[in-house]
Design a protein around this nucleic acid. Sequence first.
DNA 1: TACTCGTCGCGTACGACGTACGCGACCTTG
DNA 2: CAAGGTCGCGTACGTCGTACGCGACGAGTA
Lengths: 234, 234
Amino acid sequence: MVNWEKAAQPAKAARAALSYEAITVAAIEVADTQGLDAVTMRKVAEHIGAGAMSLYRYVDSRDDLITLMVDRVSAEAIAPPPTGDWRADLTEAAHRIRQVTLRHPWLARHALNAEDFGPGTLAMTESTLALLDGHGLDTGDMLDAWRTLLAFVQGHAFAEARRHEARQRRADGSETGAPGPSFLDRAAESGEYPLSARALLEAVRHTDPRDAFDRRLGHVLDGLAQAFFERGRR
Amino acid sequence: MVNWEKAAQPAKAARAALSYEAITVAAIEVADTQGLDAVTMRKVAEHIGAGAMSLYRYVDSRDDLITLMVDRVSAEAIAPPPTGDWRADLTEAAHRIRQVTLRHPWLARHALNAEDFGPGTLAMTESTLALLDGHGLDTGDMLDAWRTLLAFVQGHAFAEARRHEARQRRADGSETGAPGPSFLDRAAESGEYPLSARALLEAVRHTDPRDAFDRRLGHVLDGLAQAFFERGRR
DNA sequence: TACTCGTCGCGTACGACGTACGCGACCTTG
DNA sequence: CAAGGTCGCGTACGTCGTACGCGACGAGTA
């Protein structure tokens, strides 16, 4: 497991050439440009001009390194302080989380669970909960509202991120000619799955992803409004 | 990429000892009991008494095998036919998806995106869309409602699944004594993160996960009701 | 100055992995 | 019985994570 205290300190000895910071940043860069599978100890080390085994002075294992990456990137999604308009605030927070997930698609497969939150993830959580504070919700309500919103935003953004990854893989893999019809294409033609097949294909082609996200986010916020924010509660 | 047509056919020659079916089932069993990382070509093959390279007669790569696993497991979440009560129907569908995700926690990291849906995933989608049909929604509305619900359910269930995985890893890893305080524990004591740290710790301890899921699902359904199902629409 | 000691970077090496290649055994068809 | 296709798999290669331990270096002490 990651030792967060040690990772936060700047350096034990001044002469240190490597650091948690440098290693994590390098790993994130590799992941963003070449995918998470390319984050091998050797490649990350090479990226900062070090030997592979040097990383183990700082990181216990590759999994630990990925945990550090996720936590650092989560801090990019810290929400601005509340303005008093809860709905606008939560919308902004949701969009930040979505943006970060699209910027770092590998995040989708490795988001943290509360049991190994680091400082970045915790700061992001704190900033989002602050948006809900002061509206008369108790702790349990705040947590419910937050988890409802986060589940939707992560679920939606993760699906978008996976779509990006798939598209990229397709582009990298076969530079030769048309991709050929997918199972979905043939299913649409066959007439089985009358509701889903055509709808899915059309959606992929004709929809602006950001608008779709916004619309669906609106429904979730409507639900939260009804439960927590409207006069004549419950 | 997976050739779904070939995978659906029973067998080319009657004398075949292996099959897509057997391989996929074996891989799922390994993943459920030992985690997805344990799904190696050698282990899966051994599990059905075959040689490692034999699997490649049926599967192009390990990634393809995982795609097959995901698609097969998705079929476990097919919703029953609509009863006319959209809210009860969607609640049931959501619970099925959650149950399947908890039964196969590795699913969380590898859910499919629409571009490589197979028959199982598509059947699950079709069954859920059928619950929305006949209530006056057009195709776009149905897709919006479905994606909103699915994003929430997957996001929430994935978080729960990750929590299970972490707990299990902790149990496997250190059979010696107490786990020691996590960063979250110390953060709660330190008084930074006043909103999140304590709330998160309490939530983990005192809440029945199923109740929490139900409550939050309710909020999402409220939002959908408001947008799509209530008289005096919009 | 000389000696001790902790920190740092990394070279070597091992076991496990995904999988390309191609062989022999078998079944089907003529 | 011959020809051709299908099936299972043994061998081998390149890459991965990482255990182990060595040499270089700087700070503290005498």
